[in-house]
Design a protein around this nucleic acid. Sequence first.
DNA 1: CAATCATACAACCGAATGGTTGCATGTAAA
DNA 2: TTTACATGCAACCATTCGGTTGTATGATTG
Lengths: 112, 112
Amino acid sequence: MKGLLDDEADALFQALADRTRRDIVRRVAGEGLSVTDLAADYDMSFAAVQKHVAVLERAGLVTKRRVGKQQIAHAEVGPLRTIRSMLAELEDQWVDRVQRIDDLLSGDEQAG
Amino acid sequence: MKGLLDDEADALFQALADRTRRDIVRRVAGEGLSVTDLAADYDMSFAAVQKHVAVLERAGLVTKRRVGKQQIAHAEVGPLRTIRSMLAELEDQWVDRVQRIDDLLSGDEQAG
DNA sequence: CAATCATACAACCGAATGGTTGCATGTAAA
DNA sequence: TTTACATGCAACCATTCGGTTGTATGATTG
């Protein structure tokens, strides 16, 4: 039922669970960069960087557009907002329950 | 230099990149639950759930307090806020750069 | 102390991850 | 059409991950 949401969350968090990929997202935020330009700044092979971009693409965090020979990667802000709202919900649950416990402790338990 | 922050981000995102662990965080938000109580609701061994809790603990998302025989797990809200501010920064960079590009496109490029 | 319940931890297993190299394809330029 | 550059992809390798079972430790109860 909600398996798809879980799948998306899995992919998003996992995509961001690598510092190289987080750095890539930062660098392609707004303005785009070709895969080669991206790869130039990392101490690993081009293929490794290309695979990182592919992971981000599969998670929806990055899209690519062809410009001549190059494939320009751009960050998508939508999925970032998705994650943030997931985390906000987690925090809300935390706050709600603490509030409920506070209510109990402060003697508001008039109706069980 | 900022390797520690990267380590923390790695651990946090990776800890949340598993639906069982996200569910555990939700369930121990505010009120605590023993590891056994947690494990009762998942279709996997007690040891597997215990390892998930350990991962969350290492990432700082969960702490445990002994109460009698039981070890009660509680969610910590601080790390959640840490992640949210990281994502907010990412989004801010996105917005900043788009703004800069918008400025260029709208003809504000007086001082190249 | 003995018995029991809750937890921790080690050893193992198959699958996924993050890296490598090498090769194939696509696009632009000569 | 050849040449060169940018990208994609497959095969391989070491390590990590998410699960298992089994055993050891800790705290409570009889």
